[in-house]
Design a binder for these strands. Structure first.
Lengths: 350, 350
DNA sequence: ATTAGCACTCGGGGAGCAAGAGTGCTAACA
DNA sequence: TGTTAGCACTCTTGCTCCCCGAGTGCTAAT
């Protein structure tokens, strides 16, 4: 693989991303940094096509990158510029600060990505797997009506109303609260299981059978807590881009939840996936740029951008990268070894 | 206005809704219940066009209803069949029962409408205007960290974490809780105002200045409570229907909140609005079928369907109607004078 | 008042054609 | 041997022309 061929491949991708039209040898030869004739480029392009990096929509049209072409471009050829301080500040503003609830943080990230990239964005919330139950309260609020409150060490709060068949006496309530605290306090959210609650229901029923709805309520709340939620923002942007099949996009928007398993199985660091390569994320000409953010060193959730394969990777990757780092930083209370504010200069060597 | 003309108008609308194509005189003349020749129908159609109820996309195409045509059809000509018991049961299942939280009830209604009509659905939650604060709790959950819990008589529960500058002693907490309960218990959600909280902040600060974040927290929660939230479900359905302009639909989905003012100002009973007639709801060929549900006799929120003007009104209107009634019934705890289950036979006279 | 008949109009779809863009190949050149 | 100019070839795109069918409006007959 010639050095010049790589340069030409990069140029083709850049031009195609810019114009959206198949790009011909002449267009390449007229670029500043290319100093060979159109004929030479034609030869090289034919070779690149042979190798599977380019393809022609039809004879006598220009060339278009194949997804292997994009792959090579992204992995080896592209050098995304690092963000300017203004851009970072802008992102910081859109994201929020350390007081912003985690929930909102990822939502803001999604909104920022849709706005800046004009593509769809996906985010998943931070699943507090490794956080522990720090408080459970049962508060009477009316005739046979109780509110259960569940709080974790990471600050998630869930509540739920619960109707019992009888009112509880003060002692009964106290007994129950104590029992629950003894059994759940300090238990990690991940350890909570159906069986555990079944056992508790049994134990509690022995004392007073009508307490079991409360245990069930707590069980449901803990399920809520474990639930990874996926938000797709700006899905409609995908419809206005005409290299994507409308039908596929609609189907995708309707079944966005299928994505979550896929997001789960990604590795650390920024990744680019193509629709063709995946069964679950099956929009033909699409690509997805995703990354996982961390919370106190552990992977907690993902965020990313979904767009046509022909997106400006050079522009989007730094955005996704910076937001991931910043969210990781904010969620870890500043412990992560990532610069806190918009004065990073960990620019990759050019 | 001839009786036959009305019959023909109705037939044109029905046929157009069914086929989506402009409908010609011949097609009408072949319908079962029409016993005049195509020529006669042509004359009448010309008259209906003159009157503004029909229009031709171009000479020598069939006729299409204008929105005044639809208006007349909906208000006078159409006789929607009442739902069968199976349909009602189906809706009941999708909606939930008296144990379902109100929030979920309206969400379920939206989901049901999108599924059954293949159109978009809008719902607003029940604003608990006239409900009162029934409980306020402040629960310590960590170092200088407190959770505020706000519960209303209608069963809405809101919580919020709040960080203080100092830890509170048991007495301080008790003082605060008592003070808040005295001032807020039984106060209607509608009465809560910025000024009221300002006054409370002042009073509380006199005792201990660092309590004011708690009051502010409560204030924010009460704002959440008053907030009417609008959910648009199945917006993507609008994109697959080709009599709507894609760009307008995208714009609409992005600014769905503009709808809320419009939903506010509707009257009781089912209404049909057209995109053309409204500035705020400006998708060209669209129509919206909305209704307000009531809670204990008062208007509490809205639900409706948004689709192309060419929707099956006869099918959708009974759905919206029944869901409104059912939600009103469920939210009022069975007090509304509407049959509780799927055995209504208040069919409109045919 | 209704209907049959007829001439007219207009959009949709296919065929045919010219222009333009881009290629592959060959032959010349450094 | 690698690069370049030239040329013939291919294929899409946009255009025009034309026909067909559907549906109308009008007129005359019933």
């Amino acid at each position: 693989m010639d050095d010049r061929k790589l340069k030409i491949l990069a140029a083709v991708v850049d031009e195609y991303v810019r114009t959206g039209e198949p790009v011909g040898s002449k267009a390449i030869s007229q670029l500043e940094h290319i100093n060979v004739s159109a004929a030479t480029i034609r030869n090289d392009m034919a070779a690149l096509e042979q190798l599977g990096y380019l393809e022609q929509p039809h004879t006598s049209a220009g060339r278009v990158p194949t997804f292997q072409g994009y792959r090579l471009y992204i992995d080896e050829l592209m050098t995304p510029p690092s963000l300017t301080d203004e851009e970072k500040e802008r992102l910081d503003d859109m994201l929020g600060d350390s007081d912003t609830p985690e929930e909102l943080l990822v939502q803001n990230a999604a909104a920022a990505l849709t706005e800046l990239t004009q593509c769809a964005a996906v985010v998943t919330n931070a699943v507090p797997r490794f956080s522990v139950i720090s408080k459970v309260e049962v508060i009477p609020t009316g005739k046979r009506l109780y509110v259960i409150l569940l709080i974790t060490s990471s600050g998630s709060i869930k509540n739920k109303a619960c109707r019992l068949e009888f009112d509880l006496s003060h002692e009964q309530l106290e007994f129950f609260t104590r029992y629950i605290e003894e059994n759940l306090n300090g238990v990690s959210v991940d350890e909570l299981s159906e069986e555990m609650f079944d056992k508790m229901v049994a134990a509690v029923s022995a004392y007073m059978v009508s307490l079991s709805p409360l245990v069930k309520g707590i069980c449901e709340l803990s399920e809520d807590l474990r639930q990874q939620e996926l938000t797709l923002s700006g899905g409609e942007k995908l419809l206005s881009c005409d290299d994507l099949d409308k039908m596929e996009v609609v189907r995708f928007i309707e079944h966005k939840d299928d994505l979550s398993s896929m997001l789960e199985e990604t590795f650390s660091g920024i990744q680019v996936k193509f629709g063709q390569e995946s069964g679950t994320f099956a929009i033909g000409n699409s690509s997805m740029i995703v990354s996982k953010y961390r919370k106190s060193g552990r992977e907690a959730g993902s965020l990313g951008v979904i767009g046509p394969m022909r997106v400006d990777y050079k522009k989007i990757i730094p955005y996704v990268d910076y937001l991931t780092q910043r969210i990781s930083y904010l969620m870890s209370g500043g412990e992560e070894n990532i610069p806190p504010a918009a004065d990073t200069d960990s620019a990759p060597p050019d």
